[in-house]
Design a protein around this nucleic acid. Structure first.
Length: 909
RNA sequence: GGGCGUUUAACUCAGCGGAAGAGUGCCACCUUCACACGGUGGAAGUCGAAGGUUCAAUCCCUUCAACGCCCACCA
């Protein structure tokens, strides 16, 4: 046996194993393997990205699932890849270009700029992939995909063309969200609303053209009055009814437009009851404009600067124009007031610029027909959300879905496969570049300049990565995928859209289960951000503490995600996990130092059908049974996606049961077996103790492996195993319960023994007895069964409780001469009385106070239970099991009470 | 304006119908031959408030309060 270093050093073990696993091809899943498939696709991180805690959390969860299912003999495949991330990537490369060469993308031109992006990706785009490797993730790298690679692009184009041909993609001039900084259209989802921005509700008067008066309107955006083409009032509003149909003369542009009646747009209770209508710059006004056939005048250009329609204000940006318009209205004497007004303002998700509603010709996907099957699939349980409550969020969005604007005025992305004919003006939509117009045969074709929204490629991810539109073996085996893990922040962006695309193109849901994890924040619940400087970089964490502690810390914290809650993460969590790793390391050191002469084959042989109960001593029977209980509990927790519960169960099994109890019991037993103790030596006991210890540790490592792959592998390799054992823990079987090792009787006996030991230690601590001091212990029990057990394990009790002698008697039986009744410390272990004679250390007054306090508690317990059991309603209606438990408890409490009374009497005073 | 969620030990969180659990922190003791990244023992909670249902409620129902999240075009 090689000797392990004294402390766990992740840096010494982690890098080795990843390379080894890769070399042996353990991460690769063969699509033809005759095993049940288990598939996960990674939520593709942006190529521009660097690993952050959000990635670390999600991918840790995914790797836990994958490693667990792989060990459970599934054909487990976790598909890696990256997303081209249109706007984000283009912005990063543009910034670099500006900083290094002082150029804009326009200086380079489209083709050259795209070349630069590819070069940039070549240079740095793999950073996140190597970071995922340092996490220990068992991704099937042979299947690595990128959303801009040719095969994937072909899938994107295919999807576009099919939807176009089916009438589900159309081009229209509509009011869309426009970012004046990114200079592109955005989908509704890409607009973030700042809730409760303190703004101003500004009122001004529009004079009537005939000079007969004015109408006062209220607005949060005075500058848009330059594009007004109507004023609307409610048809039933007595204040304004008479003005309907009258003409307004615009005080700045001189344009004339009508006062119209619109019960949809106007809420008579709000503002002045009259609404200025700017169809080209407000979604509601746009609808109103459509209803009334109003002219739609865009007053802003793509950079948010007032255009020629703005007359004297042309050339001012929208904020300056607002001030200028207000100043002008003031000069004209038309200002009518101003109120504070709280409202929501939309910002570009990427650059935080205030988004401008703009009239623009864009491409859209008609969503309702796609949403319907996606709603039904979840209703029918074909796809299940975990936690289930997220399905409500999903349904709500799906049932109120609106068309998706998919064209972007960017260069980096999938170019829209549409060509316009210079001669007949018709469109040709094609999978490959057409040579002539479908309609007139002309060769004068120009491709649409725009690219597709990044999410238009992402929504195909679960099947485009598996070869779609070709009918591949991969699709057959791994589609639908088993689980999708992702953060709840992209349910709409990604999950819902994948559901729609999967059902539409594949006719099957893309995944059976959607596991939604929560967001990671700092320990105060603040979102981590570089600006705030509160980020914890997983790369740094790994360098300092290793990937395993990071993974374990994240798993420990991963409880079911509730709305509005998040994971508060701190380095303390990682340090705790590292301490756990160190504990495991040292438990293994202990084992390895004590395995001399151990024959794993022999042990395996002798326990093939469970341990021989006559041959194996209590601690061994107990720990071998506990191994199986832990296996059952952990496997079940994972099956139910209770990741934190699974991690905590592994933790407690290893720390509490293996380390705190079994190793302590084994230490003493090995000493006995070696004949070093004063107790009879039993050399034959050695192999059973060694075997139980190794079994417990070896099983624990397999249970731990999905959480801490490196450490578990390293330890597992060190442990002796029967010949013919696999080469790596990765290809062993995940432990599931083996009931042949279950041993209720041993667990009950051990529980009793443990209680007595804890009571003894309690007395020692209470009386401040030094650990070197051996005491006498007298145990008083009420039944022969317990007496037999405690008699049988006196040695263990003595060793763990540091006693020089342990005596067990039936209650009331003779104490034996050397016990002095005046100087006995008493504690209860359930209904077993534990007494330690302590000449000179007992203050009988103090002792009495302590016992009396305990008695009061017992009396209250007894009364409560007795009252309950005296209640006929309870006896009649409570389930038998509950009744039984209450009766048992009452009996125990009564015995304990009797014992305490005896003790109080004994003390006298 | 709708919808959802949270409120349990000092902190962070599990539990969700049978008289409350974990990790950290705290207190006392221990340099016991795997580990001081440790051991042993302990203190600590009217389970947000008020009603109701039930033999029984932290857990179910109602109302309220505080906090948080999502959706929505109210000028």
């Amino acid at each position: 046996m090689s000797e392990l270093p004294k402390t766990y050093e992740p840096q010494l073990i982690e890098p080795r194993w990843y390379a080894e696993w890769m070399a042996r091809g353990y991460f690769h899943a063969d699509a033809s393997a005759p095993k049940a498939p288990f598939a996960i696709v990674i939520p593709p991180p942006n190529v521009t990205g660097s690993l952050h805690m959000g990635h670390a959390l999600g991918t840790t969860i995914e790797d836990i699932f994958t490693r667990w299912k792989r060990m459970a003999a599934y054909n487990a495949m976790w598909l890696p890849g990256t997303d081209h991330a249109g706007i984000a990537t283009q912005m990063v490369v543009e910034r670099e270009l500006r900083e290094t060469e002082g150029k804009s993308r326009h200086d380079l031109g489209r083709e050259e700029f795209i070349k630069r992006i590819w070069a940039w990706r070549e240079r740095t785009g793999d950073r996140i992939l190597s970071q995922l490797k340092t996490m220990g993730h068992s991704l099937d790298w042979e299947r690595l995909k990128f959303t801009m690679e040719p095969a994937y692009s072909a899938a994107v184009i295919e999807a576009f063309v099919r939807l176009y041909e089916e009438g589900l993609i159309y081009r229209a001039r509509r009011l869309i969200n426009w970012c004046v900084s990114c200079r592109t259209a955005l989908s509704d989802l890409e607009v973030d609303y700042d809730e409760g921005v303190q703004g101003e509700l500004y009122e001004f008067a529009y004079p009537l053209a005939d000079g007969s008066g004015e109408v006062v309107v209220a607005t949060t955006r005075p500058e848009t009055m330059l594009g007004d083409t109507a004023v609307a009032v409610h048809p039933d509003d007595p204040r304004h009814r008479s003005k309907i149909g009258k003409i307004i003369k615009h005080p700045i542009t001189g344009r004339e437009f009508p006062i119209i009646a619109d019960p949809v747009l106007v809420d008579p209770k709000f503002g002045t009851g009259a609404v200025k209508v700017t169809p080209a710059h407000d979604p509601n006004d746009f609808e109103c404009g459509v209803r009334h056939g109003l002219p739609m005048i865009s007053i802003l250009d793509e950079m948010g600067v007032v255009n020629a329609e703005g007359g004297p204000f042309a050339g001012l940006d929208r904020w300056k124009a607002r001030k200028a318009v207000k100043a002008r209205l003031h000069e004209l004497g038309l200002e009518r007031g101003s109120k504070a007004h709280v409202h929501a303002v939309g910002h570009c998700q990427r650059c935080e610029t205030v988004v401008e509603p703009m009239l623009s010709t864009q491409w859209f996907v008609k969503m309702e027909p796609l949403a319907q099957p996606a709603i039904e699939a979840v209703e029918q349980g074909k796809t299940r959300f975990v936690p289930e409550s997220w399905s409500k969020t999903y349904f709500h969005w799906m049932r109120n879905i609106r068309d998706w604007c998919i064209s972007r005025q960017l260069w980096w992305g999938h170019r829209i496969p549409v060509w316009y004919c210079a001669r007949c003006r018709e469109m040709t939509v094609a999978r490959t570049t057409p040579t002539q117009c479908q309609h007139c045969g002309s060769g004068e074709l120009t491709q649409d300049e725009d690219v597709l929204d990044t999410w238009f490629s992402s929504w195909l991810w679960p099947f485009a990565t598996l070869g779609w539109p070709n009918e591949t073996r991969e699709l057959k085996t791994f589609y639908p995928t088993t689980v999708l893990d992702t953060g709840y922040d992209i349910i709409f962006f990604w999950v819902a859209r994948m559901m729609m695309a999967g059902l539409h193109f594949m006719k099957k849901v893309p995944f059976r289960t959607v596991y939604l994890h929560t967001m990671v924040t700092d320990d105060k619940g603040e979102k981590m951000s570089k600006v705030k400087g509160n980020t914890i970089d997983p790369v740094d964490v790994i360098a300092k503490h290793g990937a395993d502690p990071l993974r374990f810390a994240l798993a420990w914290l991963t409880t079911h995600a509730a709305q509005g809650k998040n994971i508060k993460f701190s380095m303390g969590n990682v340090e705790d996990a590292r301490r756990f790793a160190n504990k495991i390391w040292n438990a293994t050191r202990f084992a390895l130092l004590n395995l001399e002469g151990f024959d794993a084959d022999r042990f395996a042989d002798r326990t093939a059908d469970g341990p021989d109960r006559a041959e194996f001593d209590l601690p061994e029977r107990w720990i071998l049974s506990r191994v199986q209980r832990a296996s059952e509990e952990i496997d079940k927790a994972l099956e139910e996606y209770r990741i934190s519960d699974a991690a905590q169960a592994v933790y407690h099994f290893i720390w509490d049961e293996i380390c705190d109890w079994y190793i302590e019991l084994a230490k003493a037993a090995l000493l006995r077996a070696d004949g070093n103790a004063e107790i009879t030596a039993n050399p034959e006991a050695r192999w059973r103790i060694q075997g139980a210890l190794v079994t417990a540790l070896e099983t624990a490592m397999r249970l731990l492996h999905p959480f801490m792959p490196f450490l578990s592998e390293e330890i597992w390799q060190q442990l002796p195993k029967p010949s013919g054992a696999p080469q790596s823990i990765m290809i062993t079987l995940y432990p599931v319960r083996d009931v042949r090792f279950y041993d209720d009787a041993s667990e009950a006996s051990m529980a009793l023994v443990q209680k007595v030991i804890v009571a003894l230690r309690g007395i020692r601590a209470d009386k401040n007895i030094h650990s070197a001091t051996r005491v006498m212990a007298l145990l008083s029990v009420n039944d022969d069964y317990k007496k037999t057990i405690l008699e049988g394990y006196k040695t263990i009790i003595a060793e763990q409780g540091r006693c020089r002698e342990v005596r067990v008697r039936r209650s009331g039986a003779s104490l034996g001469g050397e016990f002095s009744l005046d100087h006995v410390a008493t504690a209860l272990a359930g209904d077993v009385e534990v007494m330690v004679p302590l000449e000179g250390l007992i203050d009988s007054g103090e002792e009495k106070v302590k016992l009396t306090r305990e008695r009061a508690k017992l009396v209250s317990d007894r009364d409560y239970l007795a009252r309950k059991l005296a209640n006929p309603q309870f006896v009649e209606k409570a389930p038998a099991e509950v009744l039984e438990r209450s009766r048992g408890k009452l009996a125990e409490v009564e015995i304990a009470l009797a014992k305490i009374d005896e003790a109080i009497v004994r003390i006298g005073a």
